[in-house]
């Protein structure tokens, strides 16, 4: 244990400690939340998207779109920045209102300025920072302050300083397709969520993303395709 810590650089150790402190103390007395889809509520600290919070969704566009579904369905505007390859049809199928969705596919070097301009207007911003872009502490603090004032939520597809939670798809099983027959019909995924509020523990849930009717929902029955690996994770959590 000790060896592992000494290997970490000083800076990372400080950041890790700060995150633990931050996780233990509530940032505000009354936390306002945004409408959140049922499938995600168990994976997010506080059970919902916190107004003013930042989140990281790693490696799955479908999961990121699911994060937008709740607020969009409740009448908020959403923006997607830096994803030129977004499947619009999938966004519509995920339940996002297209008439309240704005895309900025190629923000280029201005991406941070674009995000801060959009914070004033839309409730949820999904952003993919350009390759190799680093968000400085000062810039992220400024952005976080604006987000809190506007009660918006920022979702990044790469690491983001002081994120409330980091969600990733760790396992993904498609149904309906075989070796040369069928077609992609439904998928079960295991989503792992790490949050500083849980002091280093990881929560994992099994979700349909999507099921045969195109809905995203938690997998209810344990026999409903839960893999041994998943059960191990749940025991560990």
């Amino acid at each position: 244990m000790f060896d592992a810590v000494s290997e970490l650089s000083r800076e990372e150790r400080i950041r890790g400690l700060q995150e633990r402190i931050q996780g233990m103390q509530a940032t505000r007395l009354d936390e306002r939340t945004l409408p959140t889809s049922e499938a995600l509520s168990e994976l997010l600290p506080g059970g919902a998207l916190q107004a003013g919070g930042g989140y990281v969704v790693d490696g799955s566009t479908a999961l990121a779109l699911e994060m937008l579904r709740g607020p969009s369905g409740a009448g908020s505007w959403c923006a997607i920045v830096g994803l030129p390859d977004l499947g619009v049809e999938a966004a519509a199928a995920a339940g996002i209102a297209l008439d309240r969705l704005v895309l900025v596919p190629h923000p280029g070097e201005h991406w941070l300025a674009v995000v801060s301009a959009l914070v004033d207007a839309v409730a949820v911003i999904l952003v993919r920072p350009p390759q190799g872009a680093r968000v400085g502490d000062a810039a992220s603090t400024r952005l976080a302050a604006r987000l809190r004032r506007r009660e918006g939520v920022l979702i990044s597809t790469t690491s983001w300083p002081r994120a409330q939670a980091r969600l990733a798809v760790t396992e993904s099983d498609w149904a309906g397709i075989g070796s040369g027959f069928g077609h992609l019909a439904a998928r079960q995924v295991t989503v792992a969520s790490a949050s500083p509020a849980w002091q280093g523990r990881i929560r994992a849930r099994r979700l349909w993303l999507p099921d045969r009717e195109g809905r995203v929902a938690p997998v209810r029955s344990r026999h409903d395709g839960a893999s041994p690996a998943l059960q191990a994770v749940q025991r560990g959590a």
């Binding site: 977004l86 619009v88 519509a92 297209l98 704005v102 900025v104 596919p105 674009v114 004033d120």
Partner: peptide, 20 residues
């Protein structure tokens, strides 16, 4: 007003609305 600001920054095709 926010979208117009972004559009002024990136050009006319910088801000898009999706349609099916």
């Amino acid at each position: 007003s926010a979208l117009s600001r972004v559009q002024a920054m990136l050009g006319h095709r910088g801000v898009l609305t999706p349609q099916l």
